[in-house]
Amino acid sequence: MPSSILESATDAPVATREARRARRLPLKVVVGGAVVAALVIVGVLSPWLAPHDPQYQALEAMLKPPEWLGGAHVLGTDNLGRDILSRIIYGARVSLLVAFAVVLISGAVGILLGAISGYFGGKVDFAIQKLVEVVWAFPALLLAITILAFLGQGLFNLILALVAQRWIQYCRVVRGQTLSLRDRDFVAATRALGAGSPRVIWRHILPNLLQISLVIGTFSMASAIISEASLSFLGLGVPPGIPSWGTMLADSRSYISTAWWLALFPGLAIFVTVLGINLLGDGVRDLLDPRLKRAMKH
């Protein structure tokens, strides 16, 4: 048998296998996506998934250990006899709501201001960039603490406090991208055809910024979840009545030596969620455009 026929016979499946492998989603995206999907499902279906009422206080069953250590509840109970698993499941709602709200609002504000700043330049750009400079000078958590000291505890206030600094990331990156996009031929052609600035920004600039915004959004979601938990832990975020992972950890501090399960499980929930979102972010970044990796880095 001629060698060329042999080669083509063995090469064909290899090529197909490689093509199939290239088409397959990266493991990071699959694992990260699964974690985010689980968070969404648990958050949305929490009333049906939680085995107990998260607020119900069974005072006769305070600080009971998890089921495998002889307790009656899967992950044990807290200092007021509330079921920890149910509170974690309901806590996913808060994390989900805060994360999505912060990403959507800060994304909308940051992308719009960044696009306007980069497209118009001049005084508009100067004013927006001065604002960016002032807010950028605050370490992130510090600004949120200051705002919450002003507004007081509450879910809406918490979202507002987190948005206050997060829009900058979008604004800075989008401004840079817009500066390079506004001089491209397709934008000039659209302008020559008589399109006004709002139309150019909305129809031609913004769609080109979606990829990079998606990547920033994914990482921003992870940091929003950690910040929400941190602020709730400090007693400045979610009000005590609402079960959240951060407040659960704050409550656990007095019982670290006697009831470790109070601190372990809510923290694990935050860690696994953030890890999943970061994996997804990494995967999406690599998948969409390898060049984005460099753009994000600089």
């Binding site: 601190a263 923290g267 890890l275």
Partner: peptide, 22 residues
């Protein structure tokens, strides 16, 4: 690296207290 960026520092602190001190 991935674990480091995903770890809430206050939870890590509590866990370190739990294991090393408690």
């Amino acid at each position: 690296g991935l674990f480091g960026i995903s770890m809430p520092n206050f939870w890590l602190g509590i866990m370190l207290i739990l294991v090393c001190a408690g």
